[in-house]
Design a protein around this nucleic acid. Structure first.
Lengths: 338, 338
DNA sequence: CTGAAAGCGCTAACAC
DNA sequence: GTGTTAGCGCTTTCAG
């Protein structure tokens, strides 16, 4: 079907050897400028493009990086992917995307799939279900460069990029406290995830600072990060049915924030009068919402960019990397409901 | 760095030839079941995975498909990509994504980039700027399978998937008319795009049906589909400053719908009292908006799936395809503001 | 039933 | 300055 020209075609057409053509195209010094020009011109005229598979086979790298996220159709991830793509593109890399849908099994399969050498490195944000990361560890031990972003793991020593989840959670919770709320619940994702742990710590730190006791009934986990609406609904209902009903919820995730607002709307709970909210969200239309959600926004695009730069640094380094960077990028609090 | 086992490694370890190993792994009939088992077991034990680049080089196909969209971080496209990925994944294909950011130049480069043989086929949704598609035509003539989705072109004969833009626009406009609006403006994207043309036709057909004259001042184009907020703002302001101000706007795009609501909010224009809206949008949080936007939702996920299935049909067909499908999938109108 | 050898497109010693 | 050759990992004749 689609049979693009090869080096050989050029060589034959010009009565040269393939190696000469190869050298001319890659501008090696030991080649007459006359032949060089001849080759270049001809290559241009037939729109010659080297076969990337042959190159990959030869150079043992594919100039592509694998990206593992839970869902593409997610505010945070689609923005992060945009950042990843912006850097990768400039540096001549393709990105290959796979989704875990928050499933551990799917994550294993995807990683395996990507790893079987079609990618030079991996940009990974763990699935909500993932607790055991031996699949990644094994790969990493074999030499596959991996950079974590957003949902990171401490069990692998490599570059990591995360949002300042602690501070973001602290800020949001403190905002609720300062606005006058006392019984602040916390709705969060899977307890394994680094983001959940860090945000929980931020939440607790804020409560501590103001001498508000942490109430374990007030902390609700949604193991799939709100991917299933029932999960979120159950958690919210549980909170609403507590004897000492919370007067505010700090929500530790985008889908959870949205899901929670949907449920409260359905239940006709007035926000913030009956229940105040503050939550992580990367939606860019929060200003248009009826509920004035105070939100913590993660620097998704920048995080994608940073992670990609780090990965490329590993990929293009001549020497093995031993010092790993652990970058934390600030979140931003947007106050809306007070 | 990362040096996975090869056929040769297995062959040496087992004292066989690479060809025998190759045959054993692919379960060729003419091989003793004993050797077969020995090879299979060993391959399993070292977790052997064939090198995809070598395979691609040999088989002249990469089991990957290129996807060209304007932005990943866009409701419609991220949902469509999700659909694309769902099918591709099941069939063992990778997807390689590139963004045009609505730029013609970037589209040309990306297509070129993808085309240089690393992908077996292309799934394309044209950029807003694209008027001339010779870059795609050339490629297609050389045998690169291309399937268009959403923003299609009639200049290439191939499979196409689109939303029922005409009907969607008709429904939205008719809804505005039936609700009592008479001076209905139309805010749309680049006039080259198939989606703009079809939606304009639907808009005009609805006006015609109710004997409302089409007023050319009422039709405003945003050449970049609202990617630049100024563009949208200019268009909306122009409409608001008309002598005979429209009482409603039918908006033909997701970003435009969002952008328009943002501007109206800024200008403190009451919706729908001062100006009613209905527009295309694939946002899944419209129910939470303060403005009750009646929306036309495109079947993004299904469109991605359909386009991918069509492309795979071409890729995996033994014979050249001569009959092309032109599938139109129904949109859905969600009435909110009346 | 198995092995040797060629070839996919390219680069890099190594000749001359 | 240019050609020859080998090899990246794999499949596939062709021999035996």
């Amino acid at each position: 079907m689609f049979e693009p020209p090869t080096l050989k075609d050029i060589a034959i057409a010009l009565g040269l050897s393939t190696s000469t053509v190869s050298r001319a195209l890659r501008d090696t010094y030991e080649i007459s400028s006359k032949t060089k020009k001849r080759v270049l011109d001809y290559a241009q005229s037939i729109n010659y493009q080297p076969n990337p598979n042959a190159l990959s086979l030869k150079e043992r790298r594919s100039k592509s990086i694998g990206v593992v996220v839970s869902e593409v159709a997610n505010h945070y991830f689609s923005q992060a992917i945009s950042g990843i793509e912006s850097i990768a593109y400039d540096r001549g890399y393709h990105i290959i995307i796979s989704q875990t849908h928050e499933s551990y099994e799917r994550e294993k399969i995807n990683v395996q799939h990507l790893a079987s050498r079609s990618v030079d490195g991996l940009l990974v944000s763990l699935s909500a279900e993932t607790n055991d990361i031996s699949h990644l560890k094994e790969l990493h031990d074999k030499g596959m460069p991996i950079v974590f972003f957003d949902r990171v793991s401490n069990e692998i020593e490599t570059h990591k990029v995360r949002a300042d989840n602690f501070q973001g959670a602290f800020d949001a919770t403190e905002h609720l406290i300062k606005t006058g709320y006392k019984r602040i619940a916390h709705l969060t994702s899977s307890p394994h995830l680094s983001i959940s742990i860090e945000r929980l710590e931020g939440y607790m730190a804020a409560l501590n600072k103001y001498n508000i006791p942490v109430h374990s009934d007030y902390i609700k986990n949604c193991p799939h990060g709100g991917m299933f609406p029932e999960e979120t609904e159950r958690a919210v209902l549980d909170l609403l049915q507590l004897q000492e009903k919370p007067d505010a919820i700090f929500i530790a995730g985008d889908r959870l924030s949205i899901g929670c607002m949907e449920i409260l709307k359905k239940l006709n709970v007035k926000v913030p009068d009956e229940l105040a909210l503050a939550g992580f969200s990367n939606s860019d239309v929060l200003d248009l919402f009826e509920i004035r959600l105070s939100s913590v926004r993660q620097p998704a695009f920048e995080m994608g960019q940073a992670a990609t730069e780090m990965l490329l640094k590993i990929l293009e380094s001549k020497y093995p990397i031993t010092e790993f960077e652990n970058r934390t990028i600030a979140t931003k609090l947007f106050i809306r409901n007070s």
